[in-house]
Amino acid sequence: MTLGFSWRETIGIIFLGHFLISLAITANAIVGAKYHIPYTIQSRTSFGFFASFVAVFIRMLVGFFWYGINTYNGAICVNAVIIAIWPSFKDVPNGLPESANITTQMMTSYVVYFLITLPFHWIHPRYLKWFFDIKTISMLGNYGTMAVNINDFARYARATRMVYAQILAVPLSFMLMSFMGIIIAGAASDLYGTDIWDPLTIMSYWSGSSGARAAAAFVSLSFVLAQLGANISANCISASNDLNAMFPSYVNLRRGSYIIAFVGAWALTPWNILASASALLNFMDGYIIWLAPITGILLSDYYVVHRQTYDVEDMYIPHGKYRYNKWGTNWRAVVAWLIGSVPLIPGFALRVCLGL
């Protein structure tokens, strides 16, 4: 809307974009639902047994970074809950913490949110599917990464037909949420006299009475749950699957989840990333240029090259048919990946350097 589109055009664009990506997600999910294999195993059929580790690492890296960033965003939401309940805890203007400053208040909220997420790493991924649903309707992010590793979830489907619901669930959910967001932002802009698109900023004005603070607390809590669902499903489960595939003798899904949690949320110090590394954030936003070609290769390999037929047993054999050559690499997939990603690097570099 800030680019000049009407609210109707904006909602239409959001619906169309997510409808198109839902087609890719569903088409890839059919593989996982049919053969009950995760992305880490599926990638072997396309890239070769050993070259698949490169494709897995590319997806795992984005999971590490976004886990930390989303954990920090969840901490901001926890901080908003605390401020709404305990006004004296507020020590910054408008009742919201500044990302550039890590105060004792913010670190307390960060620890609280981190501890909230830890128990969920003990739950098996198949029982976290409702968190994925929360992500579908709450996370306003790029779904391109999910098109790559959707089979980390689709593998638990009892029947292949179950994945078709995503074709409409994804675009309709985003369209509904964007419609509500436009109404809320428009009302807040008229009420407070300035354009406000950040819901946490809107809630910073809700401090005039106990009822207003209670509303801010409940709304902030919903954002905490949304961040939790997004982080566990999109980042933690996916990246832990990747770690498990790369180090199967040492890392299971639970151990992988804890590694992701501590490296992503603490070792990478996401508060520093958000405070100063705008180029890194632009890099992570543009990371899709490497993931999208992987999705295309996975789809073409299944539907065109192998004609919707895989040998699951050979996927787990280092010297099976999916080794392709002595290096365990399908050079055709590597070339296709380079053709799909290399031409986009100049524009990507411009975005990172200039912050576009």
Rank of each mutant, 00 (worst) to 15 (best):
232 I>S: 10
287 Y>I: 03
288 I>S: 04
176 L>V: 00
115 L>R: 03
222 S>Q: 04
76 I>C: 09
199 P>Q: 13
75 A>N: 09
196 I>E: 10
231 N>E: 10
162 M>V: 10
289 I>E: 10
123 I>T: 02
59 R>K: 08
325 N>E: 02
207 S>D: 11
47 F>V: 04
154 A>W: 08
34 K>P: 13
99 S>V: 06
57 F>H: 07
52 S>W: 08
31 V>P: 03
47 F>Y: 08
1 M>R: 07
77 C>R: 01
66 W>S: 06
147 A>Q: 00
272 N>D: 03
1 M>T: 09
38 P>N: 04
355 G>R: 06
275 A>K: 01
250 Y>E: 14
311 D>F: 01
155 R>T: 01
8 R>E: 11
64 F>G: 11
327 W>L: 11
73 N>L: 14
38 P>Y: 14
79 N>Y: 02
294 I>D: 04
233 S>T: 11
24 A>Y: 15
120 F>D: 06
72 Y>V: 13
227 Q>G: 14
302 Y>P: 03
260 I>G: 10
76 I>P: 05
77 C>W: 00
265 A>V: 02
282 N>V: 12
333 A>T: 05
133 D>S: 12
69 I>D: 01
183 I>N: 04
229 G>K: 02
83 I>K: 08
305 V>R: 09
69 I>K: 05
179 F>G: 15
44 R>Q: 05
247 F>A: 11
126 R>Q: 15
295 T>N: 00
184 I>N: 06
224 V>Q: 04
